[in-house]
């Protein structure tokens, strides 16, 4: 059973601390996405789990066994790299069977395992080709195949879809999700793309500046962001955030304190939760300056009377005139409240 426990893991490069005491508990068979902007430490954490970086402190356990002093190849983990890292002078079959050959697996057994993995990924006709003869998507499959043949307990993916075009990325997302179900293995997937994280992961770990901001299911991090960072990082377009002190009429309509004693300081509203008219309970004066059509929906960008940026996402063509002052509204249940430190308050 490959439960992965990350306990108080720290890591520094010189004087720069990149992982600041991280704790994550990943169950067997779970698909966990490490999500964050560039430089948040997500890839470093994955490399620590793989054994490609030494830890500054803390422990990483696979099952009940600490792996921090075990060589990368002996940990029972296989990694798919962002650049695929296929050996250019070896054929697809040789790439996929390399680890088994080093391991001393008999040749017929290597051929059988490579054949099986190739069948799962639909790359059997490519086995005698070299990486330079393959398309991006095919290389991606080979890289995954190289991981599969090792039958690892834990799969580690380092932004594996970032080099693919949008259409192929969407297709590979579905394939990877299917593969996860089929293999029933623990998967840890690094990405900066929230769509990948939201669509594929059982749980998302949102990271920023070497810290974990929130761990939760995709629905959880979207509907109940733990803080303003997560609230604005998850969701496209990002959540509108207003300081309550600039909207005294709203302050009166919202609770002045919540159950745990927190005092609301900032509120957040998702663009799709804002109505283009005054029919909602909470209203704000606004001026919309431009609109963008995304086909299925239309985005309106403007500012509120207090000068805050405002984005509205609407599925219908709005009747309001761009550039004219108007009133927009939302309901209380759609408001996310945060205290002065940006921490979520539930009411």
């Amino acid at each position: 059973m490959a439960r992965v426990e990350i306990k108080n893991v720290t890591k520094s490069f010189g004087a720069t601390e990149v992982l600041k005491g991280l704790d994550i508990d990943i169950s067997h068979g779970e698909f966990v996405a490490l999500l964050g902007a560039s430089g948040c430490g997500k890839s470093t954490l994955l490399r620590c789990i793989a054994g490609l970086e030494d830890l500054g402190g803390g422990d990483i356990r696979f099952g009940n066994k600490s792996v921090i002093n075990i060589a990368p190849s002996k940990r029972g983990a296989a990694m798919v790299f962002q650049s695929y890292a296929l050996y250019p002078h070896k054929t697809v079959a040789e790439n996929m069977g390399f680890a088994l050959r080093i391991d001393g697996t008999p040749k017929p057994e290597i051929e059988r395992k490579v054949g099986e993995a190739a069948k799962i990924l639909g790359i059997t006709p490519l086995l005698n080709k070299r990486p330079r003869q393959l398309s991006g998507g095919q290389r991606q499959r080979v890289a995954i195949g190289r991981a599969i043949v090792r039958a690892p307990e834990v799969f580690l993916f380092d932004e594996p879809l970032s080099n693919l075009d949008a259409e192929l990325r969407a297709r590979m997302r579905v394939e990877l999700t299917r593969l996860h179900r089929r293999l029933d293995a623990t998967m840890i997937y690094v990405t900066h793309d929230q769509v990948e994280a939201m669509t594929m992961a059982d749980r998302i770990v949102v990271m920023e500046g070497g810290h974990i901001q929130q761990i939760g299911t995709p629905d959880d991090v979207y509907a109940r962001p733990a803080n303003i960072y997560v609230a604005q990082f998850i969701g496209t377009p990002k959540m509108n955030v207003f300081k309550l002190s600039s909207y005294l009429h709203l302050q009166k309509q919202l609770p002045s304190a919540v159950a745990n004693g927190g005092i609301p300081h900032t509120i957040g509203i998702r663009p799709e939760d804002i109505r283009e008219d005054a029919s909602g309970a909470l209203k704000i004066g606004a001026t919309l300056e431009l609109s963008e059509s995304l086909g299925r929906e239309r985005l309106y960008h403007g500012s509120t009377v207090a000068g805050d940026e405002l984005t509205i996402a609407s599925h219908k063509e709005m009747s309001l005139q761009v550039g004219q002052p108007t009133t927009v509204s939302f309901n209380r249940g759609q408001v996310h409240m945060f205290d002065e430190k940006g921490i979520r308050l539930d009411f």
Partner: peptide, 26 residues
């Protein structure tokens, strides 16, 4: 790319094997 060498390490290759099987042919 460093990732090539890291991939070989993940595959279980030691430094001599990496040199012989990966670096020298390339």
């Amino acid at each position: 790319p460093d990732e090539l060498i890291e991939a070989a390490r993940m595959d279980g290759a030691d430094e001599w094997l990496i040199l012989r099987e990966l670096i020298l042919p390339l």
